[in-house]
Amino acid sequence: MSLDRIALVSDVHGNLTALEAVLADIEGRGIERIFNLGDYVGKGPRGREVVEVCRRRCEVNILGNWDDFLPDPARTYDTEGMAWWLAQLGEGQGDWLRGLPFSYDFLLSGRRVRLFHASSTSVHNRVRFDHDEREFLGMFANTPATGDGPPPTVVGYGDTHDPFYEVDRARRTLFNTGSVGNAMDDPTPVYVILEGVFGSAAEAPFAIQFVRVPYDAEAELAVARDMGMPEWDGYASELRHGIYRGEMHDPDGPKYHRRPAQLQ
């Protein structure tokens, strides 16, 4: 039986060097189908270029929280970083980002898969790895954001930058892709490969694989410095050490990135 493979990437956050390394790994494995779970921009220096590459290379592109709020014409920003990242977008890219679909459903080896960025209700509602049962079940629910239809049995999402895999006795499977451009704890970019029979309602082998791809973080930091990107020290903390920029000046804080953060 021939199985299809789909690469899932998420949370590139303007880190073009990391994205190029991950795409090279995907291409080297002969995978042609790439789905992107959002957050193309912000935090890193090259949102414009990341959007250009993803529009060209990704078969499916999904809305992320940064993609929704950063180019929102109703918002005004009084921080240097937000204004800078917004200014990096090319003509029409803000409209493209805000017009992306909320979720994407498909069949794979008899399982109904649903992908979205953060949760079933909103790109701004965060569900972390240490969720409770109510939050877990809520990820599989139909909502006004996802629309009607058969509920999924497999849900994949990004947003938290914490990759994980979980399954219950009803065979509901929840996983997080982690982040390509802004991975926490282990700062090595990570993406997911789904393997199965695409579009098939018949049960068949099904697999989820997490892949870490080393890249030249110092090259990306050099680009950010040369471009004069604000919050460079925080960005260096994240790319070099996987320490969230909001914690870099808190030596007594928790050791690992296992806590809420507002703008991941």
Rank of each mutant, 00 (worst) to 15 (best):
I6W: 04
A7T: 00
V9T: 12
V9E: 01
S10K: 07
D11R: 02
V12G: 05
V12M: 03
V12P: 03
L16S: 01
L16W: 02
T17G: 02
A21V: 03
L23Q: 07
A24T: 11
D25R: 01
D25S: 05
R29V: 01
R33F: 00
F35L: 11
G42M: 07
K43N: 11
R46W: 04
E49I: 03
V51P: 11
E52D: 15
V53Q: 05
C54W: 02
R55S: 01
R56L: 00
R56A: 15
C58W: 04
C58Y: 06
I62V: 05
D68C: 05
L70S: 08
L70W: 02
A74S: 12
R75G: 01
R75F: 00
T76Q: 04
T76N: 10
Y77F: 15
D78E: 06
D78P: 02
T79E: 03
E80L: 06
A83S: 12
W84R: 02
W84D: 00
L89H: 08
E91G: 04
G94K: 01
D95H: 10
P101R: 00
S103G: 08
D105E: 13
D105H: 15
L108T: 09
G110I: 02
R111K: 09
A118H: 05
S119D: 03
S119P: 05
S120N: 05
V123N: 04
R126H: 09
V127K: 11
E133I: 08
E135Y: 02
G138Q: 07
N142D: 05
P144F: 06
T146A: 08
G147P: 14
V154G: 08
Y157T: 02
D159W: 13
T160I: 12
Y165K: 14
E166D: 15
D168F: 13
R169N: 14
R171E: 15
R172I: 03
N176G: 12
T177W: 12
T177V: 14
G178C: 12
S179R: 11
G181Q: 06
G181D: 10
A183H: 09
D185T: 08
P189H: 11
Y191T: 14
I193H: 13
L194E: 01
E195W: 09
E195C: 08
A207W: 13
I208Y: 11
R212L: 14
V213I: 07
V213T: 15
V213S: 12
P214W: 07
A217Q: 03
A219K: 03
A219M: 01
L221K: 02
A224G: 06
Y235E: 02
A236V: 07
E238R: 12
H241I: 00
H241Q: 06
Y244L: 08
M248L: 07
D250H: 02
D252E: 09
G253C: 07
Q262P: 04
Q262T: 07
Q262E: 12
Q262S: 15
Q264I: 10
Q264R: 13
